[in-house]
C-alpha cells in the first residue's frame, strides 16, 4: 500500500496547486481559492479545447470499437494465416507513438501519399493539406488514432470471443438460427462486459490525447486541434502556469469521471465489469 504514495502524493499536491497561482519557477505560491477555475470557464481557448476533446472522443471510440469487433469476428473464424493477421493488426499498437505520428505527418502533407491517392480516386483534397485546414485537421488525427488503437482492442475482443461456449452455437444451429440471429442473441450479449471495458479504457485514454497533437499540430491551425491535455502541457510546462494547468487537469478529470460513471450506468453495470 505504501506504493500508492507515488500516486497519491502527486495527486494531492497538484490538487492543492490548482488553488494557487503557482508558477513553476517561483517557489512561493499564493492561495487564490477557486480563481483558477473561474478563469478557466471564461478562457475561450480552454472551451475550444474542451469542445475538440469531446469531439475527438465521440468521433473515435464508436469507430474503434466497431472496427475492432468486426475484425475480431472475422479473424476468429477458421481462416488461413489468422495468426499472421492478428499480429499484423496488433503491430501499430506496439510501435512507438511518436514515430507513427511523424509518419502520418508526412502521409497527410500536401505532397504526401494520401493526397496523391485522393487525386487518383478523384476525391477533392483540402487546399492547405490535411493537417493545415481547420476543417480536416482534427478528423485526420482522429482517423490516425482509430488506425493505431483498434488492433489492441481487437485482441481483447478475440479473448472474449473465445470464452463463448461453443455448445450455444451448436444448439442454435440445430434450431436453425441464422448467422445474424446467432450474432444478435449469443455473441453480442457475451461480449457486453468486454465492450464496456474497452469503451471505458478507450474513454480514459482518448480524453487524454496528447502525443499525436504534440508531434503533429501543436493545437493548430487556429486551435482546431487544441485538446485539454495539450493545453495543460502548454500552460504548465511551457508558460510555467502550473496552478492554472492543474485546475485544467482537474476539470478534465471530473468530466472523464462523469463519463465513465455514466457509461457504467448506461450499460447497467454499476457493480462490476464482468458481472
Amino acid at each position: 500500500m505504501t506504493l500508492i504514495l507515488f500516486w497519491l502524493f502527486p495527486l494531492i499536491y497538484s490538487l492543492y496547486l490548482s488553488f494557487t497561482d503557482y508558477t513553476v519557477l517561483n517557489p512561493y505560491p499564493n492561495f487564490i481559492g477557486v480563481q483558477n477555475y473561474l478563469n478557466l470557464f471564461s478562457d475561450p481557448d480552454f472551451l475550444t479545447a474542451l469542445k475538440n476533446t469531446s469531439l475527438f472522443v465521440a468521433g473515435t471510440i464508436p469507430f474503434t470499437t466497431i472496427i475492432a469487433l468486426f475484425l475480431a469476428l472475422i479473424v476468429n473464424q477458421k481462416i488461413p494465416l489468422k495468426d499472421f493477421f492478428r499480429a499484423g493488426f496488433f503491430l501499430p499498437s506496439i510501435t512507438s507513438m511518436v514515430v507513427i505520428a511523424l509518419i502520418f505527418t508526412n502521409l497527410y502533407s500536401k505532397d504526401g501519399y494520401l493526397t496523391f491517392l485522393c487525386h487518383l480516386l478523384g476525391i477533392p483534397t483540402p487546399e492547405k493539406g490535411f493537417l493545415f485546414s481547420t476543417s480536416t485537421a482534427l478528423p485526420s488525427i482522429m482517423l490516425m488514432d482509430v488506425w493505431v488503437s483498434f488492433g489492441y482492442y481487437l485482441i481483447l475482443y478475440l479473448a472474449a470471443l473465445q470464452a463463448i461456449p461453443q455448445e450455444l452455437y451448436e444448439a442454435a444451429e440445430i434450431s436453425g438460427a441464422s448467422f445474424w440471429q446467432k450474432f444478435r442473441y449469443i455473441t453480442l450479449p457475451y461480449l457486453r462486459p468486454m465492450t464496456l471495458l474497452i469503451v471505458l479504457l478507450n474513454t480514459i485514454r482518448s480524453f487524454q490525447i496528447f502525443i499525436e497533437i504534440f508531434v503533429m499540430t501543436k493545437g493548430g491551425p487556429l486551435n482546431s486541434t487544441l485538446t485539454v491535455v495539450y493545453s495543460v502541457y502548454e500552460n504548465g510546462l511551457v508558460r510555467f502556469q502550473m496552478g492554472y494547468a492543474s485546475a485544467m487537469a482537474y476539470v478534465l478529470f471530473f468530466i472523464i469521471m462523469i463519463f465513465s460513471l455514466l457509461q457504467m450506468k448506461v450499460f447497467g453495470l454499476g457493480k462490476g465489469v464482468e458481472e
Binding site: 502524493f9 513553476v24 494547468a245 465513465s260
Partner: peptide
C-alpha cells in the same frame, strides 16, 4: 481515489 488517478493527465504530476 485510486480510480481517480487513472483520469489525471500526467503532466501535472511530473514535478511532484
Amino acid at each position: 481515489s485510486v480510480v481517480l488517478v487513472l483520469m489525471i493527465p500526467v503532466h501535472i504530476l511530473i514535478i511532484p
